[in-house]
């Protein structure tokens, strides 16, 4: 049984998220920075009336920043009751993937991705990586203010 996945690109690599976790994809025209928020938070955007935080995938993955372009997208994901955006280089494809085809990530990927990649799958010649969305978004309280 195949499941729909949203494919997005960050620094040339292809990542996927189950489409059921994705509310929508939006083009990006800048976020309002929030002083004091964790470094990987690009800021706030308004998506259909909701004000949501956007996590910059490049910053999160420790990659150099990229000038935003027409391809830049915010993948709006649902995480329980939270709605959070992920800023990626581009996102324009939906793939049907069989969950059984996912393999544990090779050690090199685990190391390079700081644990953000849960699994990988080979789709023809392409390797797509299933990301651990909650981990990428991060749940840490911003100020280390006694919580955790």
């Amino acid at each position: 049984m195949s499941v729909l996945h949203v494919v997005f690109k960050v620094d040339g690599a292809e990542y996927v998220l189950p489409a059921s976790d994705v509310l929508q994809m939006e083009s990006f025209s800048g976020a309002t920075p929030v002083p004091g928020a964790p470094a990987h938070v690009a800021g706030l955007v308004q998506v259909r009336g909701r004000v949501i935080p956007v996590v910059d995938a490049r910053r999160r993955f420790g990659l150099p920043a990229l000038e935003r372009s027409l391809d830049t997208r915010v993948v709006v994901g649902q995480l329980g009751t939270r709605t959070v955006g992920l800023l990626v280089d581009s996102a324009r494809e939906v793939l049907k993937l069989d969950p059984a085809k996912f393999q544990p990530p090779p050690p090199l990927v685990v190391e390079g991705s700081r644990g953000f990649v849960k699994a990988v799958a080979q789709v023809g010649p392409r390797l797509v990586m299933l990301i651990d969305f909650p981990r990428v978004i991060g749940e840490e309280a911003p100020d280390g203010d006694g919580k955790r």
Partner: peptide, 27 residues
């Protein structure tokens, strides 16, 4: 005033966000 509920952006000194009409949140 729209309070910010997500823990990522709940920071001291920011009471929330508002829309001044440009579609961008203003802190």
């Amino acid at each position: 005033l729209r309070p910010l509920e997500d823990p990522l952006v709940r920071v001291p000194g920011v009471a929330g966000a508002t829309d001044l009409g440009d579609g961008q949140p203003t802190l």
